[in-house]
Design a binder for these strands. Structure first.
Length: 479
RNA sequence: CGGGGUGUGGCGAAGUUUGGUAUCGCGCUUGGUUCGGGACCAAGAGGCCUCGGGUUCGAAUCCCGACACUCCGACCA
């Protein structure tokens, strides 16, 4: 990639200033625009198309695992939000309140949903009466509002789009299985659709969701070594069920509380795509969510037959792929740069010389590699190449993840890595929250990402305090 | 919420120190020539200089205030 020239001058180089590179990319490629509401963003067609492709894929996965879509109100009465103590404490600082309606002050103020556990619980209390009513496997696609102090497009905005699954189960075992099953759906989606490898595991007590018994997470690493909490799945036990008085008659005719889960991913994933795959020329979109999978650039369009042939090729590919034929009179060079910046995985060049020989030129966005291929069987060639691009994006990201993962055997080593490197640090931990806090303070922001599922015995003692170690923890800075 | 930076046609900037008719590049429109890595010629359109006060004969420029964006921290999906 180093030999590939930086084509777009307006984009700050990724290595110069990753943060500026990010904001340049999202604006220049027309993914988002800012709105007049602080912290809120306009998701433009090119950005929204990525979200639609994400939704389509994920929604199919949810349906395949037995879930149904529903829609809950966007307002939550204050009294309802108050019912679960940890939950309200976790969210209260960042909720927006509606105090007036139709010009009159409301008797009870309404919170704009920051998440919908309480609404689902209120509803479940009404419709769950028997073990025969379980499980309830609901999901909703919606937006939520969290009054964030610092906002960045896709990564953290005051309002963002997401999906939230909320399920109720007869037994704790079933609910726990659901929690892990959906985490696996996320992990697989990241890998197979977004070409992003993740570290996954359980959040520590300190980092878990407000009101949950256990929180599980997928943690992709961005190109610069910083983590992004990429999706979470929570096991609630029966805490909310008790708070909301959700009960059912069990198989033994006793009244029981159901066991609950929730899980969600958001438009933040678009940020993960940008920061995992992007380069100095702009976006590099994984083929399976790219709004345009291949762009056809006709060369010397004025010459007889070129445009007609290009249209013919476009038509032959449209059934299987998302294709754009750019027949505007911008110069070919302009088009090359434009679609490179926008991260279109594959470019198909078609000029008089090619047509004569019955070929076209394919150019990969990820490597810049050019190949001349026959127009005969082009659809199969394109399919193969898109899969190939997907795999190489994944492998490149995996390589980065591995290269930026370190192991600390003692605290001096830990601090040295945290200071000098950017990435994940594997270390042992005693289970005491004080040690997590100490790490965060001593390093200025390194936090536990998760206790990975495949724990290793790096040493027998906590990297901070030297007491017997309970877990292997992955640490890192996060967005 | 603390600390920096920035607000000037759609985008990027100059002009602000030292007040005096609002500039440049890109983009846009129309016509023509071009086309294998951001083409060229010609003619056009487009701006209460972020907003609100103040000082002044006169404010993009000086003073006070607000807001927004952005970067770095703290907080969080």
């Amino acid at each position: 990639m180093s030999e590939q020239k930086k084509m777009v001058e307006e984009i700050t180089s990724r290595d110069t200033d990753f943060a500026r590179w990010y904001t340049d990319v999202v604006k220049k490629t027309e993914l988002v625009d800012y709105s007049s509401v602080k912290g809120c963003m306009v998701i433009r067609p090119y950005g929204y198309a990525i979200w639609e492709n994400i939704q389509k894929d994920l929604d199919a996965r949810f349906k395949a695992t037995g879930h149904e879509n529903v829609y809950m109100p966007m307002f939550i009465p204050e009294s309802l939000l108050q019912k679960e103590k940890d939950h309200v404490e976790g969210f209260a600082p960042e909720v927006a309140w509606v105090t007036h309606g139709g010009g009159e002050k409301l008797a009870e103020r309404l919170c704009v949903r920051p998440t919908s556990e309480t609404l689902f619980c209120e509803h479940y209390a009404k419709i769950i009466n028997s073990y025969r009513d379980l499980p309830k496997l609901y999901n909703q696609w919606c937006s939520v509002v969290r009054w964030e102090k610092t906002t960045r497009p896709f990564l953290r905005s005051a309002e963002f789009l997401w999906q939230e699954g909320h399920t109720m189960h007869e037994t704790a075992e079933e609910a726990k299985a659901e929690t892990l099953r959906m985490l696996e759906v996320y992990r697989d989606f990241y890998k197979e659709t977004l070409a992003i490898p993740v570290v996954w595991g359980q959040k520590t007590e300190k980092e878990k969701f407000a009101g949950a018994e256990a929180t599980y997470t997928v943690e992709p690493m961005m190109h610069n070594g910083v983590a992004l909490q990429g999706g979470t799945s929570h096991y609630f036990g029966d805490g909310f069920a008790r708070a909301f008085n959700i009960r059912f008659s069990g198989r033994d005719n006793t009244l029981q509380y159901p066991h609950q889960t929730s899980w969600g991913v958001s438009t933040r994933m678009i940020g993960a795509i940008i920061m995992t795959h992007g380069d100095d020329s702009g976006l590099v979109l994984p083929p399976r969510v790219a709004p345009i999978q291949a762009v056809i650039v006709p060369i010397a369009m004025h010459k007889g037959g070129v445009l007609e042939k290009a249209e013919e090729v476009a038509a032959s590919l449209k059934e299987r792929f998302r294709i754009k034929l750019d027949a505007t009179d911008n110069s070919p060079g302009w088009k090359f740069s434009e679609y490179e910046m926008k991260g279109v995985p594959l470019r198909i060049e078609l000029g008089p010389r090619d047509i004569e020989q019955g070929v076209c030129v394919l150019v990969r966005r990820d490597t810049g590699e050019k190949t001349t291929v026959s127009l005969e069987g082009l659809a199969d060639t394109v399919a193969e190449m898109l899969d190939n691009i997907h795999d190489s994006l994944y492998n490149r990201a995996l390589e980065n993840l591995k290269n930026r993962t370190y192991t600390a055997h003692d605290y001096d080593e830990f601090l040295a890595i945290a200071k000098e490197k950017s990435g994940y640090i594997n270390a042992m931990w005693c289970g005491d929250e004080a040690c997590e806090t100490k790490i965060k303070e001593d390093t200025g922001g390194v936090k536990s990402r998760c206790i990975p599922f495949d724990e290793e015995q790096i040493s027998d003692v906590c990297v901070v305090c030297g007491k017997p170690a309970k877990h292997h923890v992955v640490f890192g800075r996060q967005y």
